[in-house]
């Protein structure tokens, strides 16, 4: 589908992100999808992010497909063992989902049901390899499928966690296992990101997979500080906290910061797109895409 073609032809890709609701209300997703339709190439649907129960990512992906938005289904290893993962992947493929983002998943104690059993039967790298094997026509049992799925495999990377080299080793393994696009944690420190990106280019990994750095528009300095405190592995440069807290209109400043980051990332060597994650602020997507000059009228 569209995302795969764009990635294969090395065009600039823009992804969005939707968090499904904590209810059975599919209209929430339909409503949110309107902010993305026509503005981005594909939209991530999260899989019980931060270990909080939400409407399933497969069902959400199907709703997006019906709305005419290409979904990227997130699949985590926290909630399913290898049997459930393979069966869910086959089900998603049958529903028409073509993009899957393979993640290990947040640990269950971060969520609202910390007593839960975390599965972690596979890790993200083994999950990527599993999907790649399924694309080749094989289940993990060795059974050869008559009609294999055709997933475009994505993975995540965190350029901001230490040590840098271990991050690159893991990225190398993910790409070797079959990942074709990489979404990163939101960038709030261009210095560290540039250092990581230079190493990625040195290793030639940007040729094999499309690197899509994350950009997160924030509404207030409070939100930024909350992330710095609560989200593990996040790095936020003090400059952005200052700017957000000194701004007369924090919302406007949030957009300005996001647009600035997108412009800076777009010119960076090896970057092949942007992953926009406006958490709880989906309505801002069209403004940011237009202001960053990424909007292409169809």
């Amino acid at each position: 589908m569209a995302l795969q073609k764009k990635i294969e032809s090395k065009q600039f890709v823009v992804c969005g992100e939707i968090g499904p609701p904590q209810s059975s209300d599919g209209d929430v997703i339909r409503e949110k999808s309107k902010h993305f339709k026509g503005y981005v190439d594909a939209v991530n649907v999260t899989d019980n992010q931060t270990a909080v129960v939400r409407l399933s990512s497969i069902a959400s992906a199907k709703i997006l497909l019906d709305e005419g938005v290409e979904p990227i289904m997130q699949m985590t290893c926290r909630d399913r063992n290898r049997l459930a993962i393979q069966s869910d992947l086959l089900g998603a493929a049958a529903l028409g989902v073509r993009n899957v983002l393979c993640l290990t998943g947040d640990y269950q104690t971060f969520g609202d049901q910390p007593e839960a059993k975390g599965v972690f039967d596979l890790d993200s790298i083994q999950l990527i390899a599993t999907v790649a094997a399924m694309n080749n026509g094989f289940l993990l049992s060795g059974f050869e499928m008559k009609k294999p799925p055709e997933f475009l495999i994505g993975a995540a990377a965190n350029p901001f966690a230490e040590p840098l080299e271990m991050r690159l080793i893991r990225l190398h393994k993910k790409i070797a296992a079959g990942a074709r696009f990489i979404q990163t944690q939101p960038v709030f420190d261009l210095g560290i990101f540039t250092r990581w990106m230079e190493r990625v280019v040195d290793m030639g990994l940007h040729e094999k997979a499309a690197i899509l750095p994350g950009v997160m528009p924030v509404r207030s300095a409070k939100a930024l500080l909350w992330m710095k405190e609560k989200v593990p592995g996040m790095r936020i440069h003090a400059e952005y906290v200052d700017r957000m807290s000194n701004a007369r209109d924090p919302q406007e400043e949030g957009v300005a910061v996001a647009v600035e980051l997108i412009r800076a990332l777009k010119d960076m060597r090896g970057v092949r797109g942007i992953h926009l994650m406006p958490a709880l602020w989906e309505s801002i997507t069209p403004t940011i895409i237009k202001e960053a000059g990424l909007y292409v009228a169809h």
Binding site: T104, D106, Y107, G118, F120, D123, S124, I125, Q126, A156, A157, N158, A161, E162, M166, I169, R170, K173, Q185, P232, G233, R235
Partner: peptide, 15 residues
């Protein structure tokens, strides 16, 4: 805690 066999998850802190 996640019993990862292929490297760290994305949550390693600065320290």
């Amino acid at each position: 805690p996640k019993r990862l066999r292929n490297g760290p998850c994305g949550g390693t802190g600065e320290d």
